[in-house]
Nucleic acid binder design. Structure first.
Lengths: 192, 192
DNA sequence: CCCGCATGAGACATTCATGTCTCATATGGC
DNA sequence: GCCATATGAGACATGAATGTCTCATGCGGG
């Protein structure tokens, strides 16, 4: 039942399982392995055959999210055009990963351990470099550090995902909400 | 040890327990009741006498946080001066509660239930009203809804608390980081 | 001085998620 | 058509955190 994606194959598609898990955990972050399995349309035993445990599952989701973020970074072509345009493209490209990002953002278990996935540093660095580029070009103010702008971007993406998920905001406004606030701020600008 | 508030009394100070729990859970959100008790310098049995369970403890922390937020709202005198100044005062006044706020922000268990503490709506309303006042006075742009600005403020406070806690930002920059980004944005302004 | 009461320590049962196992089944390739 | 293999279903053990209990202790008030 469930899906026809593997109608002619017995093997479970691990990617499909990950997507289902992401969609479920985004809504209910405390879901058990049983619920994750049901959401993916497989048995708990099979789920456990593919992912050794909940920890491994979350790690796999982390890897998936890192890959999606990297893809978003690539798709956004951060080096082209003004830094503002690049930020706008980045937020737009990151929207599909926003829910998963918000989930992992609150999964502080990932950061309490001794080692965290090195992939995040690479992503942080690329985003920080973008903000630094904007500062060097005189486009961005320099009293806000690139590290803070990066962290704030994460926070705003998580808040935006939360707004959309709770129905208090429309998905079509996601990019505009975040980019306008992050770049322009709440103050009304004189120069229209 | 710890406090002298009840040096001559046997009774445990529930407020002191809550403060300790907040300080611990802010650092390690997965701490057990045992760890919370040890952090407060009491036994698990006594902790359980005051707070029926972990759920009750989190609810009490929620109530405490709501009270602190209300106090911050009052102290910020949102109706006085420009909306910008009020926002600045609000963020400054909210800093002591930022850590606890960030913890509760990630405690999605609070929002998955059927009912959430009504206190939050009151706080949301007051903050939204502040942003709306700024919009009506022409101070804030109107293409960003008060609801989004409110949500973004929560997100930025959480991100700021995380920056400070991880050592990537100085506590003295907390207010400036958040207010400048929330109001002014990352773009450099022409009019200095 | 003695009683009351809150606490600390610890034992104990319970619950829940997890991890592991076996076995029957159905599919797909050969 | 047969066999290898992956799956589903379920039983089972495990571990951790929780909730509840009893009992001894120690301080403070009367």
């Amino acid at each position: 039942m469930s899906h026809m994606a593997y109608a002619c194959l017995m093997a479970v598609d691990p990617d499909h399982v990950l997507r289902s898990a992401a969609a479920l955990l985004t809504r209910k972050s405390t879901a058990t392995m049983d619920e994750v399995a049901k959401a993916a349309g497989i048995s708990r035993a099979t789920l456990h055959r593919h992912f050794a445990g909940r920890d491994a599952l979350v790690r796999a989701l982390e890897t998936l999210c890192i890959a999606e973020c990297k893809a978003a970074l690539d798709a956004a072509r951060l080096d082209e055009g003004t830094a503002s345009e690049a930020v706008r493209r980045l937020v737009g490209a990151a929207e599909p990963a926003a829910g998963l990002l918000a989930f992992l953002y609150t999964e502080n278990q990932l950061f309490e351990g001794e080692e965290q996935n090195a992939g995040w540093s690479l992503i942080d660095d690329r985003i920080s470099a973008l903000f630094r580029r904007g500062q060097l070009s005189g486009e961005f103010r320099i009293d806000l550090t690139p590290a803070w702008l990066t962290e704030a971007l994460y926070g705003l993406i998580a808040s935006g995902a939360w707004m959309v998920r709770s129905g208090k905001g429309a998905p079509k406004d996601f990019q505009h909400m975040i980019v306008e606030l992050l770049l322009g701020g709440a103050l009304r600008r004189e120069e229209s």
